[in-house]
């Protein structure tokens, strides 16, 4: 057999082999990256303190987008000002993640951290940049920023459920949805949001 035929067979075979085996989907890729991602989650590099999110919202240089992973009813009861509700199904669509600008900070929110963490893994696999989770979720936020008469804790609250009974569906009209920065000494927190950039590499092309 001459070299030319071997070359043609190799190229066609390699192409056809891919046709048969396909390409890994989002969940295959997530499974592959999981150890790396879990390490970041466990070392708490990506969970930002409520105070850091509040400070970010008052920073002119940094655009912040907040995505809320909770159910519609929880969202209607209470959500952060400017938060947008999304589902895990929506963020698994490649087209959705592609629309996100790499020049903003993205913060994922759920009642505690469970769903936000799941969303973080899905979006990290899709190479979304500057991606963070609100530490402690909405429950920690209300605990921190709602006045005592605005929150009634629910006893025996299950994982990733809203831990407070709220008087009515106020959504972002609840006073704690957009608390004023405190006039007292600034809250202390460990800063975790890094300068923008990272995620997918932008170094290619001819400069």
């Amino acid at each position: 057999m001459n070299a030319k035929i071997i070359g043609v067979l190799a190229a066609v075979g390699a192409g056809a082999g891919l046709l048969v085996l396909g390409q890994p989907n989002l969940h295959d890729r997530l499974a592959r990256l999981e150890p790396e991602l879990n390490q970041k989650i466990q070392s708490r590099q990506i969970q930002i303190d409520p105070a850091e999110l509040l400070a970010l919202r008052y920073e002119d240089q940094v655009g912040v987008r907040i995505f809320d992973l909770r159910s519609e009813s929880d969202f209607n009861l209470f959500h952060l000002t400017d938060a947008q509700r999304v589902s895990l199904e929506q963020i698994s669509e490649p087209a959705w993640a592609k629309e996100l600008s790499p020049k903003q900070v993205i913060v994922l929110v759920s009642n505690d951290e469970e769903q936000a963490t799941q969303a973080w893994k899905l979006l990290s696999t899709q190479k979304v940049a500057n991606l963070y989770i609100l530490a402690g979720g909405i429950n920690a936020w209300i605990e921190r920023y709602a006045k005592p008469d605005q929150k009634k804790p629910i006893a025996n609250c299950k994982n990733d459920q809203l831990g407070f009974r709220l008087p009515s569906s106020l959504g972002s009209r609840h006073p704690a949805a957009d608390p004023e920065p405190s006039h007292g000494p600034p809250e202390k927190f460990e800063k975790k949001v890094k300068s923008l950039g990272g995620g997918k590499r932008k170094a290619g092309g001819c400069g």
Partner: peptide, 25 residues
């Protein structure tokens, strides 16, 4: 085609994350 086949085979076997590569806009 050589580079393309290597990239997508490597992606299939989890040796290279094709999503992390620079794609000329």
């Amino acid at each position: 085609i050589t580079a393309m086949l290597l990239i997508f085979w490597a992606n299939l076997f989890g040796l290279l994350d094709a999503r992390a590569l620079f794609i000329n806009p």
